[in-house]
Design a protein around this nucleic acid. Sequence first.
DNA 1: TATGAATGAGTATTCATTCAT
DNA 2: CATGAATGAATACTCATTCAT
Lengths: 201, 201, 201, 201
Amino acid sequence: MSSASIHKHTAILDAAYELFGSGGFYETKMSEVAERAGIAKGTVYLYFKNKEDLFMAVTRRDCEGFLQQLEGKLRASGSLTGKLSVIAAHHLFYYYERKQHTKLFFRAPNNNPELVAYMALFMDEYMQAVVKVLLEGGASEPELMAKSYIGMLDRLKMDILFDPSFSEEDVHKRTKFAASLFIGGAVANMNASLGDLPAGQ
Amino acid sequence: MSSASIHKHTAILDAAYELFGSGGFYETKMSEVAERAGIAKGTVYLYFKNKEDLFMAVTRRDCEGFLQQLEGKLRASGSLTGKLSVIAAHHLFYYYERKQHTKLFFRAPNNNPELVAYMALFMDEYMQAVVKVLLEGGASEPELMAKSYIGMLDRLKMDILFDPSFSEEDVHKRTKFAASLFIGGAVANMNASLGDLPAGQ
Amino acid sequence: MSSASIHKHTAILDAAYELFGSGGFYETKMSEVAERAGIAKGTVYLYFKNKEDLFMAVTRRDCEGFLQQLEGKLRASGSLTGKLSVIAAHHLFYYYERKQHTKLFFRAPNNNPELVAYMALFMDEYMQAVVKVLLEGGASEPELMAKSYIGMLDRLKMDILFDPSFSEEDVHKRTKFAASLFIGGAVANMNASLGDLPAGQ
Amino acid sequence: MSSASIHKHTAILDAAYELFGSGGFYETKMSEVAERAGIAKGTVYLYFKNKEDLFMAVTRRDCEGFLQQLEGKLRASGSLTGKLSVIAAHHLFYYYERKQHTKLFFRAPNNNPELVAYMALFMDEYMQAVVKVLLEGGASEPELMAKSYIGMLDRLKMDILFDPSFSEEDVHKRTKFAASLFIGGAVANMNASLGDLPAGQ
DNA sequence: TATGAATGAGTATTCATTCAT
DNA sequence: CATGAATGAATACTCATTCAT
């Protein structure tokens, strides 16, 4: 692929990322993608088989970037607690930085088995990255714990996407909160005794 | 509204619930909804303004049912820990019982502000129900905690939806796991010491 | 099917007959068919699955009409020679009457197996009708003879389709010529002896 | 035109002949033609103005070859009957030898006046070749007779194209049958008297 | 109320053709 | 001469919605 080709390939992915991201799969027109990429409609089809293929490619690039960055950051960080904080920060800031374009990324074509399979794979890889961290601490149910942590983070991210007044500082607070809650549990954030809590749960 | 009308209204909602639930908004046809409801295509429009309106109504009924049931269960339960367990059980079993039809419910029309607003409202009401419970324990950041708990539960529910071998027993385990992790934190599930954990976090 | 439906069905077939007939399959647009039939584009699809289906239906109606008329005329006619003349007249006048619309009917979608099969069936039925006549005369190779006769007629019809000055009288002459040539052979139309003709052939 | 050019010109014609022949005009892509000819897409346009021009050239080469071969064979043959047999054999074997590639040759672009004109010209030249033979026998309606003979042959050729089990021997039989029927007429193939045949027709 | 025939706006995709290299 | 990346016109088909009955 020539450098011009690569440039066009990237331009299409970028355009599609923004449009799929804000309008979703069904409400994004291939002609819009072409226009935003600064090329002709037919040209899109020289690089991607069809609309679903383009959506897959956009998703793939995004997910791979997410995981690669995460792994780099985890390698560079130390203690267990530090790593859990890194995960939280990565998750929240990743979306914070892309809030313009990922608002509605979760609007995907509904019955595309390939996409469903890929998303499952992504989720699994993400989870395994977290599991690996947890195992260092000797967690007994690392997969469930990893899923729980990811779920927490994913929900905490929603406000970031939809609340335009969210500041970087706010994201930092949320990051610390998430790691702390996950590690210490609700009990650590409460004044009242939890005397009725079954011990060891 | 006559009783015949109510019956038809309900039949349409039921049909739409199943179809939207398994195929998503865009891949569900109004004609299919009518057919499954046992009425004529035009009749759907006597009860719902248009496809989005129908989707809204389906969503609303589902969310309201979810919240009402939750509130009933919370009133009937005692301690803080008990209530947190009730929330987890409700969230997971709700989807467990509807796994046939909610698989893809999260595929919604992408740019409908009314729907977005409603979902935000639902999330807020759900969160407030959890907040109310947490406040009994004197939580300091009850909203963030509530969101985190809901996020955990939502991710833990995904396997239930997509893994057909999931048994009722498995759901029970997950329920206990979720409540326990949320209350006691990761530290309680780990063998290794978390000596590097900043105290009080 | 209501009478209005039948009317529309027929109107579409008529419109398609004329357009396919003069422009061929590929150069006829469904929107033109609809317009000429006086209905909306979408309505065509209520009556015919797609463009190929419509083409098939048009072809079928035309071929069936051709054969039915032929059979009626054959029943009403007497001697072997008379029947052969009836066949010739039917073939030539059928196209003479439709010269406006069948000029290019032989431009069909190229790779439609169903259509190919149907045309083979039609040709076979046509041939069998001729074979039946020939068998009354004790022909020894009736199928090849039938095909030959049909081939003659089909070529003799071409001028009718493409020559606008062709009169009904001309068609009559051609009819007589065809029957006579087929029955008596070239030898009957020649002054010179055909002494070198293998005897008995 | 250099020899390399001639080679490319021929390669394109060969490729187009096979593809148009088996897929028809509309379902053959210029890119396929180029690929099969072993050249780039754009190069085709250095040799042929456009797709229709290429189709014309392919048709022309085929028709000219058909006529030239026929004329050569006719010069080499003797009696009237012999010449008629030569015509039949030529027509049938020509397609027999090309059955792979001419199955669908008759699927031409529908509204190309130049092509229509050329085909008329070809038909006329073919007819004149036959007429010339028939005039040696003093035929009174040589053109109609020629057309009829060609029509017969054309129909008799169809089975050859579509029936893969057709042997060379079968083609021979058909050749003899055609010439014999044309010369002697149906009456020669029948047991029954044709007493009602108008004398001299 | 209920129907369902009719509508027509809306869009992904193809492919002949061009032209800068 | 040769290339092949880029173009964009052109069209079948779908399906939400309407409205005469």
